[in-house]
Every structure is written in C-alpha cells, then in structure tokens.
Write a protein that binds this DNA or RNA. Structure first.
Lengths: 306, 306
DNA sequence: CGAGTTTGTCGGCCTTTCCGACAAGCGTT
DNA sequence: AACGCTTGTCGGAAAGGCCGACAAACTCG
C-alpha cells in the first residue's frame, strides 16, 4: 500500500480472505502467499492479551518480533530502552517507551501504550500490526476481533477497524472471519457500511427528512470521546436511481455549522443523523405498532449490509 | 483581533496600557476602555494558584467566569460535566473535563488539565486566558508571570507569553507592567520584538553580517526543549529605507539547512542569530569601551523597543 | 518427554488523579 | 461585625502504571 492513496485503485485491489482457526492463532502473518521461509523483517502482528489491554501494565512484545522489527536497542544502557514513534492510518503519531527488562528479560512497551489502547478502545483479542513503509516510517495498525454478539448498543461504531483492514490487505495480510463481508473505501465514504438493523429501520421509517431540516450527528474524536456537531440538510436525492431504483437509500448532502466543517463529510447517511425537529415526529401518523411486525419478521438478522 | 490575521492591521491597532497595582490584582480584564458595567461573556482570565498547578488536583474555575464563558452544563446529569476543547496559539487542541461538583459546588477542570500544565510548564502565578473567537472556537492562552529575577540565563525567551499578550490586547484587554513595552505582530515576524538592551547592542555592534555567512539560531520546540538550526544568510537589506533611514535594523533573509525548513521563517532578526565565524569578529576595530557610554546614558531604560 | 526459552499474570509499590471536607478569604449588609 | 458565598488546600481513596517474581505455555531436540 502506498501511503498517498487518493484514488480508488486500492479499492479494486482489495481481497479479503477468511483464515481458518489455526491460521488465525498464528500471530505472524505470511509475507507472501505461503512461500516464505524467513520471517519478514518489516512487520509483525500480535493479538492482544488481557495483560496487554489492562490498565495495570504495558504491552509485552514477542521477543523475535521485537528483535526483527524494532530498531536495535543500545545494550550498554541499563536497562536498554528507546522511544518508538509510529503513525496510524490517520497519520496520527503515537510514541511508546520500548524497554528490555524483567527477569527473565523481555521487550515491553510501557509509557504511551495505555493511551493508545484507550484511544483506540482496544480489548483483549484485538490485534496490532507494526509495519515499516517504504518511506522508512513505522506504521501502526489495529484489527478488532470479532466482537462476541453480546451487545452492540446504539453506540458509534469505529471505522478504524475497516481502515486497518485495508492496510493489512495491502500488506498481503488482510484477513477476517467476521460475519459481515465488507467492501470498503474509506476515502470515498467514511460512513459505516454495516449497521444494526434496528438503527436502519428507525432511520428509514421514522425519520422524515427534507431540505433545510436541522440535525445533529455524532462523531468520534481522535481522543475516543464522542462529539455532536450540528448542521442543515442542503440536498436530498436518490443515491443511484438506475441501479437502486426502489432503494430507501437517499443521498443526503448537508452543511455543517462550525468552521471546522472541513473535517466532516459533505454527505451523511440517513441512519447517522438525529433530526432536531420541533414538532413531535408525526406521533400519530406513524404509530409504533408498525415497528413490531418488522422486527419479528426479520428476527434472524442482526445486521443489514447496505 | 480577527483570527485570520495575515496583514499588518493588528500591528497598527495594538495599544498596550500599563495597569496600576490595584487593577493588576483584578483577575478580570476590562472589556472596553473603562466603560463597561457587565463582564464580557466571551473570555476570562485567571492567575494560577498552587493548587491549580500542583499534580495533586485540577483547575478551580472561578464560578462567575465559568458560568459566563463556558458552555452551559446539563444539570440533569449528576454531576454535571462536559468536555471542553480549546486551541492554543499554535492551533494545538487541548481537551478538558469540565465538571461541577464538590461541597460547596464548584467548577473544575480535571482530566486533561495536568497535561496542559506540564506541557506549557506553568507554575503558580502564571495566568491562563479562555476566549471565544469570532469563529465560535474557544481559544486558550497563557501569560507567564514575571519570573523573579533570580536567573534568566542565556536561554531563549518564550514567545508564547508574547503571543498571548497580543491576543489579550486585541480583545481590548492586553495589559502589562512588565519592564518591556512591546509592539508585536506574530504573523509578520515570529521573532521577539522586545529584547534585552545588551543583546541588541551586542548584535548591532559586534555582529558583522554578510551574505553567505553561516549561522546558528535557537528555536523552541513544542516539547519545551530548545533546538539549534543552522542556515546561511542569503540577503541583507534595510528593513524600511524610507521611514527608518538611520536604523540599525536590517532585513536578514536566510536559507535553512534542513528539509523541515518550511516551519521556520525566511527572515530572522540580527540579535537572534549566532554567527559561525572563523575569525574573531573585529575585536580591535570595535573596542568594548563603546559599550559603557551607551549603558550609562540610557540607564533609566531597561529595554528597547524596535 | 525433558530442558530451555518465552511470555502472561500477578503482587508490591509509588505516582497520579478524583473526590468531598474544611476553612480562609472576600464582599455585602 | 456577621453572614453568605466563593475557592484554595488538604486527606482519603481509587486508578494508573512501572517493576521483578513466578509459573504456564511453548519450542526444540
């Protein structure tokens, strides 16, 4: 993957290939499709343990991986340590203290690690990928584990896992066994392609949109918190009248209130916005009972790919 | 002050007015030149206490200031809290948890505050300024207290305090009784306009500059450390031959050595550079005795405005 | 299957940070 | 002077985070 991806080329090259359980347990990704005796020197991947993601400690770096991939430590220091700088897919810089200590000796990332874990909201089972790009910069990607289907409440999903899916793919290493097959171009549309069915239904049938309507929308900030931005709908049209003639999908163009709007997309998805209507959203015209037949009818599905 | 200051307009509008001791003790700056019954709603300033700067706790926000300036809290929450985002003069974003709690209730900035304090190296006695600009963004400035004259070694003065001096001035609020009267436009020239007289004299009379000469210059980095960059003088001319015909001020254009030069100005001040000359700077042609008549003659002045 | 290596988890300990208690300081009556 | 309101500082408690100890898990012969 070339760092200045601006076109759709990567989109066309993407291939997502499920791994079998044994492959999935292998922490090291094959450098080429199978044929490779030595481990590659330019990246490693590790699935995070409970200790790695706990606030109690740092990140335990697999020894061979650290020695292959990280810059060599100065062993005249006691203990040997250095600062690692890595950048994520958003070109945000992360700094880690890399130290070699303990009895027996082991490589650890300490200071800076917990900030990264909490910012990315990583949990045990997720993976991190350290990889050198052709510009000799250390990149840092994440891949979230298949979340157990316990609860995925109406929280904001992260698009990061998809971003890194792309990165790993370009490194000939992308793989996922998640239940949703995705097809994703983060530059073209940062919105999630996979949403809970209930959210979709609520948006399509309970949100009456029109030009001029005011709304709010949640955004993840870099710091993992969530912010609301307000805006006005400026245009509503069919996304693709030819191929999706009967689709409920509408192309919704909006204007953002604040001057920092450049960071936010000119189009949004219907299910992402929260209308700020002063009238009570047609309570009688659209009684709640319309909701339940739908839910029971498609109860087997828990998500819908749009 | 308009945030998109690119011209010299602000330079012309600036008026710095010393405050008497009583006014200085007043934490709130007058909004207009004296005539103003209500406090302005768009900014406040506070001198930091020992508790504010200790690692033990957060920042205690003066109640009236918080209620005037900060976005209103949602008092249905218990306790009421929100995230505040402010940007400093470098457009760096700082996030704070703003909470209203305790018995008696008070406004506090907790999470994020200590990071800010340590990043800016604030100590008790320094001031912070929260101010809304016309783009509806919250800005955050600092003004360092006059350090007790213990030691101000040959270190680089902080430009932050001057930046914020300008900001406050443009908000009709700048005031200082510091020993240097300043006259400052940070965009046109990020160099300090106020320098110790001795530094000025040394630069003008003891530094012989010429095109092609190599030099070093100190810069503050974001991380509070100081770095030396090297460069070459590419052009020397009178700053303004018409209005300052007899001035010793020279416009010195330079080229920087490293590829990160874009971050550094194309012009420098004579007194900021450190020539790398191999010959001993005309020691006999400009004997030191010329220095003392100057000093005694202007002994009442402790600084010089250029 | 046994010895050596690697690494996940833990207790100990110190620092950071959040919290309300308390009282000093200040303005108003 | 007394009162009420504001806010600076403190002790306590919880959380964060660095450390080596220990042992489970893994590797290799």
């Amino acid at each position: 993957m070339h760092a200045d991806v601006e076109t759709d080329e990567v989109y066309a090259q993407m291939t997502l290939q499920p791994l079998n359980p044994q492959e999935q347990n292998d922490a090291y990704l094959p450098a080429e499709m199978g044929i490779m005796s030595k481990q590659p020197t330019n990246y490693f991947c590790k699935t995070l343990t409970a200790s790695d993601t706990s606030t109690h400690g740092g990140f335990s770096v697999p020894r061979r991986a650290a020695e292959r991939v990280f810059p060599p430590l100065d062993f005249t220091q006691q203990p040997p340590a250095q600062e690692l700088i890595a950048r994520d897919i958003h070109d945000v810089e992360w700094k880690f203290r890399h130290i070699f200590r303990g009895q027996p000796k082991r490589h650890l990332l300490t200071t800076g690690w917990s900030v990264f874990v909490s910012a990315k909201r990583l949990v045990a089972g997720d993976s991190v990928l350290f990889i050198w790009n052709e510009k000799n910069q250390l990149w840092l990607g994440i891949r979230r584990a298949n979340r157990t289907q316990t609860v995925m409440p109406s929280s904001v999903l992260s698009s990061d896992s998809m971003h890194i899916g792309l990165l790993a793919a370009a490194a000939h290493a992308a793989s996922t066994n998640s239940r949703f097959t995705i097809f994703y171009n983060p530059r073209a549309c940062p919105s999630e392609f996979v949403i809970p069915l209930s959210k979709y239904i609520k948006a399509v049938f309970h949100t009456r949109i029109s030009v001029g309507m005011r709304f709010r929308m949640l955004f993840e900030t870099e710091e993992s918190s969530v912010r609301r931005y307000m805006g006005t709908i400026t245009e509503v049209s069919d996304a693709d009248p030819v191929r999706w003639a009967s689709s409920y999908w509408r192309s919704v163009k909006v204007g953002w209130d604040e001057s920092t709007a450049g960071e936010r997309p000119p189009r949004v998805s219907l299910w992402e916005i929260e209308p700020l209507t002063t009238f009570p959203m047609y309570p009688s015209l659209f009684p709640l009972r319309v909701k339940h037949p739908w839910y029971s009818g498609v109860a087997g599905l828990q998500g819908v790919s749009v």
